[in-house]
Design a protein around this nucleic acid. Sequence first.
RNA 1: CGGGGUGUGGCUCAGCUUGGUAGAGCGCUUGGUUCGGGACCAAGAGGCCGCGAGUUCGAAUCUCGCCACUCCGACCA
Length: 478
Amino acid sequence: MADNKKMVDEITSMEEDFAKWYTDVVKKAELADYSSVKGCMILRPYGYAMWENIQHTLDTRFKELGHENVAMPMLIPESLLQKEKDHVEGFAPEVAWVTYGGGEKLEERLCIRPTSETLFCEHYSHIIHSYRDLPKLYNQWCSVLRWEKTTRPFLRTMEFFWQEGHTMHETAAEAIAETEQMLNVYAEFCENSLAIPVIKGKKTDKEKFAGAEATYTIEAMMHDGKALQSATSHYFGDGFARAFDIQFTGRDNTLQYPHQTSWGMSTRIIGAIIMTHGDDNGLVLPPAIAPVQLIIVPVAQHKEGVLEKANELRKRLSAIARVKVDDSDNSPGWKFAQYEMKGVPLRLEIGPKDIEKDQCVIVRRDNREKIFVPLAELEAKVPELLKAVHDGLYAKALQNRENRTWNAKTMDDINEIFAKDTGFVKALWCGDTACEEMLKEKTGVSSRCMPFDGQGEKGVCVCCGKPAEKMVYWGKAY
RNA sequence: CGGGGUGUGGCUCAGCUUGGUAGAGCGCUUGGUUCGGGACCAAGAGGCCGCGAGUUCGAAUCUCGCCACUCCGACCA
């Protein structure tokens, strides 16, 4: 059976220092590197391959639902950014400005996009005239820039890669349905492809997006009990449409404002994958997005027939999984450690002893279980094991979240809980932002979301003691 | 932005207190022996000691300034 001994000693253990463990994993798994630009990272091939798999899965789903990809400029004129008041107030502190071009000072400075609502809106004002032009279901894959004060690879970088969907609809109901639909797309992606359980809910007014009427979120719990907002979906009402003068002639021949949404997921999700599934030996990847799903390690590869057999297996298995052979002259032990650090879900060992018996050894990354598999059964066994790894990861992550979710009635309860551990606290809230701020000050937790599931209970506010009926997840967040 | 820590071959660090021509391990290159959990032997390459001033006959070492990374806060939809 599996043993959980630490086999890789170049990575700080989680127990000892979770933050250091995280950066060790990012570096040792060769996901990203620091660049000469403060706060900006280099996505290395292995990390970028993960992002490509994420992109491909999401993009396919977006298109199934009727969305089209576009590319907007990366620069936004100041006048455009200024049009929606709440939006500019929210983002102004963290934008970078281009003030010179071609050696001359620009008449109007341009900001490097921190998000593209304003660009989409301006474009929409040109192309939406009739209800027949709706809905507009656009998405773009790009990078954005936000001048962050504190950065960490993937979790918070100044430039980050993401997709941003921007849609316009004839009615509020249709836009709200879109907002919910896309939140569900993200939640299903997290659970089915990334093996990360998430809580779907609505943000409080304090935490919602600048300019949005409502912000929906999926929140995941990391291995250390802290929360990570994994994706968001916003309903804008017609606020931007009014600010940007986007109007269409409706079915009743009156001028109307369309209703808008936006939704996004970023490379930050890679940070969530690392911190949800990783262990003391490094990264552990969910099979669906792992760049390599099965690594073949030949043992005693100089011996007659070993490499040939390894390559033959690669050819056979390539039809059903992403497979590689490591035929470098490093020792097998080195390779075992290497691919564990990189989180490859399955390792296949093939050596002279196996070839004699027409079998191989497969080791699961998530629990280190060693299984002898007859070569004839590989095509059946590999998909089964990949699914088992996915299910194992999901169950473990869910278990962690359940173990660390508590109920609280008072702020003292919350302080008591967080004195012992970190996690999610469910508590009723009256809806007053002052209470939310007080809670942050006295207990250090912020509201993560008002979950869709689990509302309906009535009681008193965890802060002020007045009647309350909003159930809120509270926690410490990345 | 406030508080702490760290910057020396690619990586991890020693050397700094007490100034005197730069070290180790790992990695890399070459050759040989190995190969079922990070192999071994031998030879070799590789460093404006983060940057800039200052003190000094002389600075990795002392002084001042700056920058970067990092941790904890604040801030961040």
